[in-house]
Design a protein around this nucleic acid. Structure first.
Lengths: 209, 209
DNA sequence: CGCTATTTTAAACGGGTGTTTAAAATAGTC
DNA sequence: GACTATTTTAAACACCCGTTTAAAATAGCG
């Protein structure tokens, strides 16, 4: 395997686990069994490495997500919000074939990206992969046309928050759930539980402000 | 003002803004106009300072929260989930009188605590202030008795995630919303919008797994 | 005032950080 | 096989970190 990929593989697990600021290049390179200077040689800087880690997932995910969402939009029957959110399941779970534990790693990385480094990663993702966002809002608009654009903006960000936060602490939550309820879930089980929640949240009745 | 309070006031704003790992003691002490060594003199270590920052808010918040929740539980009419979540509004907004921008600062800190430092703050809060959690689940149980304990566990954590994540990026979101919709919200406005969302999420119909 | 206890201060400590350098090793090509 | 281009390496760089030290300043009190 190339040095570049060895670094990426070591980096995304460590980044997901301990955050971007919480992971040093020395941890990454010793985990990857490569020289410290290799990161700056191949990627230029730590910041560029972070972008590369995210891009590897997004390049895999975003085409699948776009086609799944357009399938929902062009269906014969008007899709429900549950349909729209369910469109995310298959592409997300496919990341597990792309890389071991790919789904939870990616979602944890997403959570880290929103918390760390005051939003530079949010800017990177929304400017680099805008279609995912626009297609998603389009699908929601079809499923729930009464929702104003502003209300939708807020509810989609609440949804983003729910997913991202849940996944970034999913390992801890899965452990607690196993201890307290003797019910061993995996990441697919968590997704199964969060979809009805966010679908109902977005579908909440409109209140006057 | 005492050195101790000058440190606490500077620390919680910086912690909320840049995270615990992302804020150095030197930033804090120079912002507070005190000597670097004062942190270790008055608090012992950075970790203890973090606990002290959180405790200052929790000691103010948790009694109000407990009484608001018991009021909901002991009402004549069976409370709705919306009632339960609305019980949080007043105590949270009261933090603005306790300290400038107290509400959003505290909620941002909560979000940081869940992301940073692999959950030591979650442990600290749940062991130090367990009544908030038990009273809350009790209230939800009354409002929605059909929900199994396990399903409730998950939905309450989804809710926690929604709130915490939203608030930790609330400033950025408020800015975007103002630009795109010419609608200047404050933190109370965001809370007003998130309550229907989480109430509907927790109230979502039960699915079979 | 004089004495003790508390608090503040400047300086240093040991260690970790991302990044750069220049030499050594390897790969690719004529 | 010689020569260039790419990649890897060990070492150093300059800087920031949390913490500790011991002296100086201040406060409290009989």
């Amino acid at each position: 395997m190339s040095t570049k990929n060895k670094i990426l593989d070591a980096a995304d697990v460590l980044f997901a686990d301990k955050g971007f600021n919480g992971t040093s290049l020395r941890e990454i390179t010793s985990q990857a069994n490569v020289n410290l200077a290799a990161v700056n040689y191949h990627f230029g800087s730590k910041k560029e490495l972070i972008k590369a880690v995210m891009s590897r997932y997004m390049d895999e995910l975003s085409p699948q997500l776009e086609s799944a969402l357009s399938l929902v939009c062009e269906a014969e029957l008007k899709p429900s919000l549950h349909d729209v959110f369910s469109a995310f399941i298959a592409p997300l779970l496919n990341l597990n074939e792309f890389k071991e534990n790919g789904t939870s790693t990616f979602l944890q990385l997403l959570g880290r990206g929103y918390a760390d480094s005051q939003g530079f990663l949010r800017w990177f993702l929304t400017t680099q992969y805008p279609n995912v966002f626009t297609n998603f809002t389009k699908a929601v608009k079809i499923a729930y046309p009464e929702l104003s654009t502003e209300e939708m903006f807020w509810r989609l960000h609440f949804t983003m928050g729910t997913i991202v936060f849940t996944m970034s602490s999913s390992e801890a939550l899965i452990d607690i759930a196993e201890n307290d309820f003797n019910n061993k879930l995996d990441i697919a089980g968590v997704i199964e539980r969060v979809i009805p929640y966010v679908a109902a949240g977005v579908a909440a009745p409109i209140t006057n402000h």
